[in-house]
Amino acid sequence: MSTHTFGTATITLPDLEESGLHLTGIDTLDNPRGAVQDFAFGDADLRSLDLSDTRLVTGRIHDIRAQHVGFETLNLHGVEITGSDLRAARWDESKLTRVVIRNTKLLGAALNGLVLHNVLFENCRLDYATFTKVRATGPVAFAGCVLTEATFTHCDLSHVVFSKCGLRLTSFGPGRYRNTDLRGNDLSTVRGVTHFVRVRIGPGQQHDLTRALVTELDITVEGD
Rank of each mutant, 00 (worst) to 15 (best):
F6Y: 15
F6I: 07
F6P: 01
G7N: 11
G7S: 09
A9I: 04
I11C: 14
T12V: 08
P14R: 07
D15N: 15
S19M: 10
S19F: 11
S19I: 02
H22N: 09
L23H: 07
G25N: 14
D27H: 14
D27E: 15
D27S: 15
N31Y: 13
P32I: 13
P32Y: 11
V36D: 13
Q37V: 13
D38A: 12
F39R: 11
F39A: 09
F41V: 09
D43Y: 08
S48F: 13
D53V: 05
T54P: 12
R55S: 15
R55K: 15
L56A: 07
T58Q: 06
G59R: 05
D63M: 12
V69H: 05
V69C: 07
E72W: 08
T73L: 06
T73G: 01
T73I: 05
L74S: 08
H77V: 12
V79M: 12
E80N: 10
I81S: 07
T82D: 14
G83L: 11
S84M: 11
L86K: 04
L86V: 10
R87S: 11
A88I: 01
A89L: 14
W91C: 11
D92M: 07
E93T: 12
K95G: 00
T97H: 14
R98Q: 12
R98L: 09
V99P: 11
R102K: 14
K105D: 10
K105P: 02
L106K: 10
L111N: 05
N112P: 05
L114S: 12
L114Q: 14
H117N: 15
H117F: 03
N118E: 12
V119W: 08
L120S: 07
L126A: 08
D127Q: 04
Y128M: 10
Y128F: 12
A129E: 00
T130S: 12
V134R: 00
A136S: 13
T137A: 13
G138R: 06
G138F: 06
G138K: 02
G138A: 09
P139H: 10
V140S: 01
V140D: 06
F142H: 03
G144K: 09
V146S: 15
L147R: 10
L147F: 10
L147A: 09
T148I: 11
E149L: 01
T151I: 14
T153I: 07
C155N: 03
C155E: 00
C155D: 06
L157N: 09
V160L: 02
V161G: 02
F162T: 03
K164F: 11
G166W: 05
L167E: 01
L167Q: 01
R168N: 04
L169A: 05
L169W: 04
T170H: 02
T170G: 02
P174Y: 04
P174D: 11
R178S: 04
D181W: 12
L182C: 07
G184I: 06
N185H: 06
D186Q: 06
D186T: 01
G192W: 01
G192C: 03
T194K: 01
H195I: 01
H195D: 00
F196A: 02
V197G: 03
V197N: 14
R198I: 03
V199H: 00
I201C: 04
G202E: 11
P203A: 13
Q205N: 08
Q206F: 03
H207L: 15
D208L: 05
L209Y: 03
R211W: 00
A212R: 02
L213K: 00
V214A: 01
T215R: 01
L217E: 02
D218M: 08
I219T: 02
I219R: 00
T220K: 04
E222F: 03
D224S: 14
D224F: 08
